[in-house]
Amino acid sequence: MNKTEYLAALRQRLSYLPPEAVNGPIGFYAECIDERLEDGMTEEEAVAALDSVEDAARSIEADLPLATIVKQRVKEKKERSGGTRPLWIVLAIVGSPIWLSLLITAAALVLTVYVVLWAVIISLYAVVLSLAAAGVAGIVGGFWFLPAGWSSALLCFGGGLVCAGLAILLFFAFTQVARWLLLLGKKLWLGVKALFIRKKESK
């Protein structure tokens, strides 16, 4: 396979996507082939050194926003079926109580997971903030209670120090937990996105 054939095959594989989403990566592959040619390789060798068309296409797809993929897939299906047939419109309307409720449930489920993840993160930082506030209040209160007696002042001051110490320790621990939760959220999103990317066997 030479340069023209490789780039044409890649463009054909991604033909369902808008040109602006494809031109950038295809230009990049073309440039890499040119660089290899300057390095003394033949076109066939340069192309053989690249990933297969399928792998390159999948990597480009994985990098696109979900909205672009969904929009293009809907458009592609519409074009393949020669426009929306009346039968499909009737079926969509008749079946709407089922598919619409399923769609709403799925969207609500994804949204709930995200809300829960963020709620956990916010709660963790709320704990840190409360402990920090209690720490400051305890330390200041320690001085405040000095006229009332050493024991109350020391108790208050000590409590404040414990809270401040916990706040500092938990801040770092919770920051790590928050990172993990955000990573989990990202993985879930990538999973949802993968459902819309064209499957290898469906080409």
Binding site: L50, S59, A62, D63
Partner: peptide, 26 residues
């Protein structure tokens, strides 16, 4: 540096190809 040169510089240490480099650069 440019794409191919980056691949040549990095590949002795970690496996990298155009398919992995392009999204990273973006």
């Amino acid at each position: 540096s440019y794409g191919y040169q980056i691949i040549k510089d990095v590949s002795p240490y970690v496996q990298i190809s155009e398919s992995t480099l392009y999204p990273i650069l973006k």
